[in-house]
Amino acid sequence: MPHIPLPEHLPGITGLLEYRLDTAMPIRDLTQILLRGESSLTEGERELIATIVSSRNCTNFCEAAHTKAADLLLGESETARLVKLDFESAPVSDKMKALLNIAALTQKSGKAVSGEAIERAKKAGASDLEIHDTVLIAALFCLYNKYVDGLATVAPADPAFYQTLGERIVARGYMRPPGGYSKPA
């Protein structure tokens, strides 16, 4: 049960983003820019970064939602599964492995991001902006994961919930729906 009263029909992050709208707006803006804005990384690659960080923070709600979004964007579910298991042997490019390594280090601590990890990414062809965005996406998902877990929000057990959520994230992105969320009848 959540630590504070939240609308039952809005589990996970959604209820929190409705609980306090003035802080939710810039969080949503930031997410939309990073995950859906113009980038040399594909939307699927950016969702993989969100997925590995949520997985390592053991935040079930975010992990399930972003795994599903990555699966839908990539058109298969093997890559996200293997990235979470061991990204070094997952079927992604060397550049992506180096960026996932930076994301995994960022999840531990900002100070854990070593010069070697950056050098590896640059040698594999990553641009400054790709490195920047990787660190910021990883940091942003530490915010989300800690927000969701710190207030003990509900993570539905039914996989169908994440199918619907993943489809919504892929189709509509991260902005608040106009008029908010309607209560179930």
């Binding site: 306090r20 960022t106 900002g110 991001v113 920047h132 660190v135 990883a138 530490c142 915010l143 800690k146």
Partner: peptide, 18 residues
């Protein structure tokens, strides 16, 4: 909780890019 989570983001961003 939100201030703590937000500064876990800012701190990682600021130090992660040195």
């Amino acid at each position: 909780v939100l201030i703590a989570a937000t500064f876990c983001m800012f701190n990682r961003y600021v130090d992660g890019l040195a």
